[in-house]
Design a protein around this nucleic acid. Structure first.
Lengths: 346, 346
DNA sequence: TACTAAATTGCAAACGTTTACAACTATTTT
DNA sequence: AAAATAGTTGTAAACGTTTGCAATTTAGTA
């Protein structure tokens, strides 16, 4: 009994036998710029067509020593910032002749290391790594000399590695200035316990802008691993139980802000009527009607292409070098932030 | 000049030399259940540890004839239904010892075929295929006998292939009955031109339910390729320009519904005050406060695991067989649908 | 026509594994 | 102590390619 599948795929040898040449000739006929008689090449191409030959890129990459395969490690694809970015990465990689192996690390250090090993085993030419923790670097440091790696969405200026990130410090400052402009003087920052440099910089940017403008920083830190909608919801529920000593909330993430929105809705708190709410990332769903979340945009496509460019360059070059690329965030004004009115006064 | 990367990764031969055994012994020491002296095994393990050996799974899969790599072809990861499902697929695959190569087809038949070739070349053990068109099947038919494939999110009952899908026909019926229950008698269906059987079945389910209940079916079809928020927005803008001859809209997709919401917001049409709006899929963002989209839930995780199970079974078994698995959708009542009031009467 | 140069082709090794088989060593058994 | 057995290890082929080198064919020249 057979499932109709060919038990063995057709190889270059089958083609050679059929075309009456050696398999070396077939190989040459198939790769551009190799000397082979035009008539033989045509014949071979015809046979390939007829027999449905697909080159085995695994075998190919074994002798060539390159796989044209890139690993991408992200905390979770089920996060709009990641999936938007991943989309651009895959699209751009394909254009450059590379394939992507996308792996979720589930915010776990163990998984991150495990995934590195797995990708190494699969002979990837390079890795795009979105770390989920501050310790991620040390945890996977040993792999860095085995495969070209670019860190994405994390700042590692003090480490000998390449990375691309948004200027998160600057982003938060933009946010504070915007709220200041609207008249807010008590701005609460909904943070994430500085799990990553990215989040620390967002917090620091906020802190710095407060100092500069004579505001008292008001932090409300998350006990959660990830900045999910659910986390934002729980945090806000807790927060809203206390008296309001702020007129605006800056969430360190859009998803967190979405959770806040949910809690506010349930408790009858008007946004921006009672409180202004600002996000960070500008995920696609921040633009939804009625959500209309004002936010700080991270240039996701630029990030994807910059990271890919850096990685490909690092693969191509053999000399030692690492580079950083910091992209500028921009403010997106929507309607979740409003002026401080007498009623919103804390 | 050297970039600090080891130019050659450490192989089984390096280990053998260092441990003073043949490389066959190393290979055996590394795979469970092979006869090898315990002392030698310990020694080898120690050397592997010390030298930082990672087995080359590419070489391994060449001799073994299996890669433990699965291809997943989806229209676009930048779509919450897809990214949620993809998340579950990757997670489940990892648990089963498989890795995923995730490829976007960008809703293009050409890309779909191209991606099949690419995955075939990479010797994937199987493919999970989310077709984007009705013709997708014929377009890639020739690859089906080269690699075990399971279609996902599409009905192909008349074709000799395995697939898993939600009962979309039933889903639409659930929707119509729900709206009927709320008193609606003029329900407009926002469709997608039946690009796929899935969408055709949703439309047919709607049609059938209308007939059964004596309603006149009201279709409004999309000229767009994909059911994006933008498409929904454009369609609704156009639709709302005309007099309203309906009291409820059933969108064939949540993202489409989100676009409708946006247009309604802009034009000052209240939902559900003026019109009720029902989605399909139950993407995560349908649950957002103020969005609160009533919708038909597709069991995404169940779909992911069912598809993987079917694929793995089909890889394991050598006899001919294909199976179908149709999952039941459920109604999710939220607040975008309301009773018909005198003012909403068409 | 004979000689040289150029174009084309084939042979064989290599990439890093797994595994059948043979060979060797240590342990029992008689 | 010899023979049989079980346990361990090495040799070599295989997986499907690419490519340096040598061999062959073809074309070009005198």
């Amino acid at each position: 009994m057979n499932n109709g599948r060919d038990s063995r795929r057709v190889t270059i040898k089958d083609i050679a036998r059929e075309a009456g040449v050696s398999y070396a000739t077939v190989s040459r006929a198939l790769s551009e710029g190799k000397p082979v008689n035009e008539k033989t090449r045509q014949k071979i191409l015809e046979v390939c067509q007829r027999m449905g030959y697909t080159p085995n890129s695994v075998a190919r990459s074994m002798v060539m020593g390159e796989s044209h395969l890139l690993g991408v490690i992200i905390p979770s694809i089920d996060n709009p910032f990641m999936s938007e970015t991943a989309y651009h990465i895959e699209r751009y990689a394909r254009e450059q002749g590379y394939n992507i192996m996308l792996c979720n690390s589930f915010h776990s250090l163990d998984f991150e290391a495990q995934t590195f090993e797995l990708l190494l085993g699969r002979q990837v030419d390079g890795v795009l790594f979105f770390p989920s923790h501050r310790e991620s670097y040390h945890n996977i440091k040993k792999y860095l000399k085995q495969v070209p790696t670019v860190f994405v969405n994390e700042h590692l200026s003090d480490k000998p590695v390449s990375y691309v990130a948004t200027d998160n410090f600057q982003g938060s400052q933009l946010g504070v200035e915007y709220l200041l402009e609207l008249g807010h003087r008590q701005i609460l920052y909904l943070g994430r316990n500085s799990n990553t440099a990215t989040h620390e910089l967002r917090a620091k940017g906020y802190h710095h802008a407060c100092q500069k403008n004579g505001l008292t920083p008001l932090f409300w830190d998350s006990p959660y691993e990830d900045t999910t909608i659910e986390a934002g919801y729980e945090m806000a529920k807790e927060l809203f139980r206390k008296p309001r000593y702020y007129t605006a909330i800056m969430a360190s993430t859009d998803t967190l802000a979405l959770g806040v929105l949910q809690a506010a809705e349930e408790l009858g708190i008007a946004i921006p009527g009672d409180i202004s709410l600002l996000g960070f990332d500008n995920i696609r769903y921040a633009a939804l009607p009625k959500i209309n979340l004002s936010t700080i945009e991270q240039p996701k496509q630029a990030m994807a292409t910059a990271a890919m460019d850096m990685l490909l360059e690092s693969i191509a070059n053999d000399y030692e070098a690492y580079s950083h690329r910091v992209l500028m965030p921009t403010l997106v004004r929507r309607s979740s932030c409003g002026p401080v009115s007498p009623t919103t006064q804390a």
